[in-house]
Nucleic acid binder design. Structure first.
Lengths: 140, 140
DNA sequence: GCAGCTACTGCAACTTTGTTGCAATAGTGT
DNA sequence: ACACTATTGCAACAAAGTTGCAGTAGCTGC
């Protein structure tokens, strides 16, 4: 809810209309417990035209409201900072479960690379996949 | 060349045919200095049918010969270990240059997460983008 | 609450990307 | 050189993504 009003204010200050489709797509992303594909979004919002979903996601990307997460062979969308806490993902290839993670040391690693290479890092992807603890112990 | 013969041997031992299209696609990926999109591949190999490129890349993915790299909004393909040394990328958003990187500490970070979370990591993506040193100093 | 302005949506038509089945072809072993 | 069959290229298709435009809905001022 917090984030929703934050975005509403952001839109108002920029004279961008926070329309019904845009609200719906934001809420859809906010409710999801894992990153969504475009298909996920427009099957869960059947009364919003595909075109509007593409255009809204493009807008949200340019505003930094959402980010693209590469999962398996697919691109998925998820709220970005500051609309959702910064995190990464571990995906279990057996059971398909998603775990939000935030490994300590990752930030340091980025800052260290910036210093040594003399670059500025404005974005990063970091995603893990493998076998979760439960699947290692379980029957299968 | 090394890697090419390595793959040739791998194919022979598995009774998979190392055909002309498959050779061409491998060489194409090997020659490239940055990850290629499917479009990159079939524009540079116009006498190979799109279908064969999709099927070959699918095969190569399943054999671990190539891996998918998420760059910007696109998926790109690149040779994987052991056909190319393991590395990640820094992409400059101003000049578009690609730099292969291998930040020290990344492996430790993965191993540490495996221990603390009790999981097994079989794959990871780690890509950086921002502004390179040259672009920070240059006129623009 | 109404009118007017225009950003935004939904539609339709289209382009590009990815998939499937099948007949023809080209690797491989003998 | 022959035969076996994995693999290719073709054609037809399905899905994903794009574009232009007329109509709509969200703001603003009254």
């Amino acid at each position: 809810m917090q984030a929703y009003h934050q975005l509403e204010a952001e839109f108002k200050s920029r004279n961008i209309r926070f329309t019904k489709p845009r609200r719906a797509i934001f809420k859809c992303l906010q409710t999801a417990t894992y990153p969504l594909s475009i298909r996920d979004i427009y099957t869960s919002l059947p009364n919003i035209d595909r075109t509007s979903i593409y255009r809204t996601l493009e807008l949200y990307l340019s505003l930094g409201v959402v980010q693209i997460i590469p999962i398996g062979w697919k691109q998925k969308y998820e709220l970005a900072e500051p609309y959702a806490p910064h995190h990464h993902h571990f995906i279990c290839l057996k059971c398909g479960s998603h775990t939000d993670i935030n490994p300590p040391g990752l930030e340091d690693l980025l800052r260290h690379y910036e210093r040594t290479a003399g670059v500025i890092i404005t974005a990063h992807t970091f995603e893990l996949s493998g076998v979760c603890a439960a699947c290692q112990q379980g029957i299968q």
